[in-house]
Amino acid sequence: MTNVSKFGPTIGKIALLLLLCATTVAGFLWLPAAKGFPQPEMARIVVFHVPCAIVADLAAAVAAWYAIIYLRRRNQADDLKSSVSFGLALLFSLLTTVTGAIFAKSQWGGYWNWDPKQTAILMLLLIYVAYFALRAAVDDPRKRASLSAAYALFAVVAVPFLTYILPNSTDQTLHPKNVINTRDGLDASYKIVLWAGVLGLSLFYLWAFRVQVALGTLEMRLTQRIHRASQGVVARAVVVEGRK
């Protein structure tokens, strides 16, 4: 091991921490209040809320991708990656929901308004919970992997019916359209902080993903080794030529 590979990750983690701190501080102190919103000061939460939503979608996309790979190659490592990414998607979706609810309270007057986007994220949360409930109910690891991968892909297909089609068909969304693109109430500086937040959270996601996958891989290897050790010898089969 060279010094670079030893300290590289540490430097990276410190840089990531600084980036996340910087976006947080910038969100509270550097950004001007957004005049277009009923509560201009509270609109700062946009720079936390939107990146969480984007990274949650990213995590779900990665999870769905590994679900496809699992079904094609049937390799337990892909199942691990898929489930880890779904766990992170659940985490970021929860953060999106909470920040969104705080935002909704200040702008629309209530934490929960059955806005189409709120309905959609509720459905996503239910899907993630159902995904993990399904996993918990299947004992055989291979079966667990293929069933949950198939469910994930099935759910992915159902989601657009809520997230895209329903909001457009009702046209009653309280969400401002094109939040990210600068509009009247949002200063251009919002765009910078928001995308910096997306970058920071994406890197955080990547780090958490890799740590959990490494941990899961170790766990798999360890249980295998314990079982093999307790069995003593690996069971063998012998073909014996019998009578003619």
Partner: peptide, 13 residues
């Protein structure tokens, strides 16, 4: 638990 979120959009529509 598993079927409900999938059926939610259908039922709403």
């Amino acid at each position: 638990i598993v079927a409900f979120p999938i059926l939610l959009p259908l039922v709403l529509i």
